[in-house]
Amino acid sequence: MESVRLTEYARLPRAYGRLHLLHSTVDAYGRTHWLLTEAAPGPGPADPYEALVVTADRGDVYETHLGAVRLYRPRLDALPDGGFVLAEARSKPRVHHVQVFDALGRSSWTFRVGDAIGHLLTDTSGALWVGHSDEGVYGDDPLSHPGLRRWSSTGEPLWSFSPGPGPLDMSDCLALNVHGTTAWACPYMHHPLIEVGADGSVRLRTTRVRRVSGLALEGGRVAFLDLDDVLTYGRITEHTVEPEPGAARLVRPDGRALAGRSLVCRGPRIHVRERGGTDWSVFDIGRGDR
């Protein structure tokens, strides 16, 4: 099988290397953010602590100091107004596990979006797209049961997935791509490609893929990344994704195999950070690798 090499994308400056990394992401505008603390917060309900967001934006690096963070192992994304949203993946009923900060790093809102968050991505309007794993879909928290929801940055529900006949189900939101104000999801168990507009309109296309963990889309084409780091490609039609011949294994920029990773999917790009690392690399379906 041929290989496709990732391209280096963003690197945490060495000056911050001594700090503890809580989470990192790539936002709706392509900026990279690292959420850092002096030390890892203790388990259980966290006492308020200070955190630092380091942002890399087209060669510029700047800091945002967050005050009174109350989450133990938060996920991070950025808001268009310069603020940030943090969310604890696991939560208990009635416990607020989402914390929103303004551009000055002040805590402004807290609310709940449901247990077992697998994906948290903001869009260019500032809305939050939240995809849940099967532990949330089949768990005790009704907020998680739809599997995929869109929330305002102040905690107002804007849209939720509703299952339908045939492959329109959501047992586990395996992959989520948010670009502009549109989201694409690939859920278990039938693995359809679901397109959701900002107005809540839903389009479903059947696929022949399995074990999907990420996806990238551009110009009527889609690339699916599976759990073994194998890329397969398809052509998007009115009701289906028709497979294209060939497959390729996604590898590091130096050609070596990936060793565990987390993904952020944004339009034509799949951003990759290896487990335990701070650097980001990227696959771009429109880059002409094939």
Rank of each mutant, 00 (worst) to 15 (best):
R252N: 08
P80Q: 08
R269A: 13
S152P: 02
C186N: 14
A223Y: 01
R266Y: 09
H179R: 01
W184A: 09
V113G: 09
L174A: 15
G67C: 04
R249G: 00
W34R: 11
G219A: 11
H20S: 09
P245E: 04
E2R: 15
A39F: 04
G246Q: 09
V196F: 03
W280Q: 05
V98F: 01
L76R: 08
S91P: 02
V251P: 12
L231Q: 02
L174E: 13
A68H: 13
V137F: 05
T278H: 15
S107Y: 03
E195R: 15
R275A: 11
C186R: 02
G105F: 10
L79D: 01
V202M: 13
R150F: 05
L193D: 08
R205M: 11
G267K: 12
G277M: 10
R31T: 03
V95L: 14
L104R: 15
T206H: 02
R221H: 12
T182I: 07
F84M: 06
L35A: 05
D254R: 11
L76T: 10
P13L: 03
A40Y: 04
G126T: 03
T122R: 10
L6V: 06
G59K: 14
R90S: 12
G219L: 01
H239T: 15
V100M: 05
T240I: 00
F161Y: 14
T110L: 04
S162V: 15
L128N: 08
L79P: 00
E244L: 15
G155L: 03
V282W: 01
I285P: 01
G286D: 09
G197S: 13
L19T: 00
T237F: 11
R256L: 03
A39P: 00
D169A: 05
S153Q: 10
D57N: 14
V222D: 07
R273A: 11
L104D: 07
S281C: 13
G288K: 12
K92D: 10
V282C: 09
D102M: 12
R94A: 13
L217Y: 04
P187F: 02
D199R: 07
G59W: 13
R112L: 04
G197F: 10
L225E: 07
R112T: 10
H239M: 01
G276L: 11
D27C: 08
T232R: 15
R18D: 15
D81N: 14
P157D: 03
T37R: 14
H145Q: 14
L36S: 03
D115G: 03
V26R: 05
R249T: 14
G114P: 08
